[in-house]
Structure formats: C-alpha cells, structure tokens
Simulated assay, not measured.
Amino acid sequence: MSKILAHDRLILALDVPSAAEAERLMDQVQNQITFVKVGLELYTAAGPSMVQRLIERGKRVFLDLKFLDIEETVRRATERVAAMGVEFLTVHANRKALAAAVKGRGNSSLKLLAVTVLTNFDTHDLREMGIQHSVQDLVTARALLASETGCDGVVASGEEPGVLRPKVGPRFLIVTPGVRPAGKDTDDHARATTPSQTIAAGADYLVVGRPIRAASDPAAAASAILAEMQAAFDRRS
C-alpha cells in the first residue's frame, strides 16, 4: 500500500468574495496548498475564468456547486464542468440528479461527490424538513445511493466516515468539510471534527477554510494542519 501524502489530501476552501482575494490567498499559502475548493460565493463572483486561472497555476480544483435540477440541466452542466478540467464536483444526493451527472461526465476524469447532509444540519433541522431519519441514517442511505448510481464518493462530516467506510468499501471517496484544529471555533458547523479525528474515522480528503484563511500566517496554519494530517495518515496505515 503506497504512502498517503497529506499534501495531496488537504483542500483549501477558497470561500472569498473576489478573484483578487482568491489570488492573494493563493500567494500567501504558496506551495503548501495544491488542491482548492471553489464554492458558490467565488464562482458567482469570478466564474469559470477563476477555475481556469487556478488550473493554470497548477492547482487541482474541487468545484462545490451542489447541482440539483432536472436531469437535462444537470447532465449538460456536468458536461461543461468536465470540459473545464475540474477534478471534483458536488451533486445533491437525489437519484435523478446523480444519474444525470454520471451521464454528463462521460469518460472524463471528473469525480462526482454526492452531498449527503450539510455539516451545519443536525437532527432538529431534519425534523423541520419533515425527515424522520437520524443524521447518521440519512447520510448512510445517501452514500449507498451515490455508490449505486455510479458516483465516486460523498461529502460527509467527520462524524460519519467510521460508519460509512464498512458499507461503501475502501475505494469510495469520503471528503469531509468543517474540519477544525483542536481549540478552534467550529463556526457554523454542527458536526465539526479535528483533522486527526476525521482521518482516524476513515476520511480521504479534508476541506479546511477559515482556520487557514483567517490565520495571521495562512502558510504556517496550513503547514501545521498538514503535519497533523500526515501523522494521522501514517498511524492509520
């Protein structure tokens, strides 16, 4: 089994309001970060050109747009994303949307991640939506649906990988946002975990935003997280 390198598995969330701020943050973290997430805020502000600029800088890109629409719209939008050279794309865990995205990515290398339950949701939030399942049961059901429809993995909080891994197998990707180093504020994430906890539970990729973006020295913050991640991956191996 080849060694897992934390440098390949840390994804920086570029949740900033402009291309200029994204570029400035990338300059600050320099070569500490090779994989970045572009979400709704930055994509709305800067569009596909921002994605291309990141790819030209040699970065891997996770496009977190959480597609959910009629099948034809999802299929065609996924085709456009695949043509951009993006590595990961999120789609809400709805059977029709997932199947359309799988069709849309064709033979490209784009990996599709199903969004299970947002990390700021808890059981109370699900009840308000009329969902009677527990968070864990719903995440599990949606992960199995994603696997069944041909997706490559899921986005799930750090509380779920330990439950999911035995059910979805070793090759199914588990990408975890809302990761916070010990002692850091969990912000608006209801199910936040530390890097060590998340990796020990079975996650493959960790998405970290504010602990790096808001640090006085983003490169140093990223380096500390990478060190913790590497130690956790080594212990897991």
Rank of each mutant, 00 (worst) to 15 (best):
L65M: 15
G169M: 09
A45D: 11
D185N: 10
V179R: 06
R235S: 11
S49K: 06
T193Y: 00
A77M: 12
R60Q: 14
I55A: 07
L164Y: 10
I199L: 01
A222L: 04
V139C: 08
L112Y: 09
K111L: 13
A45N: 01
S49I: 09
G162S: 09
L226G: 03
H124R: 15
L206P: 15
I199M: 01
A83E: 08
L126C: 08
F62M: 03
T119I: 10
A100W: 13
I70K: 02
T186Q: 12
F233S: 01
K59S: 01
V117P: 01
N120S: 12
V168L: 14
D217K: 05
A143Q: 09
A141W: 00
S134M: 04
Y205C: 00
V163Y: 06
E21P: 08
V61G: 11
E71V: 07
G153V: 05
S196R: 11
G106M: 08
H92K: 08
L226N: 00
V163I: 12
V36C: 08
A13W: 05
G209H: 05
T123C: 07
V139P: 02
L63T: 05
Y205G: 00
G150L: 14
V29D: 03
I4E: 15
Q230M: 02
F88G: 06
R60H: 15
K3A: 15
K167P: 07
Q132G: 12
N120F: 07
A46Q: 06
E72T: 13
N31M: 15
S147W: 14
L145G: 13
E56L: 11
K37V: 07
F35W: 04
L118V: 12
A99I: 09
A19Y: 07
Q197E: 11
L118H: 07
R9H: 05
R105F: 12
S157H: 03
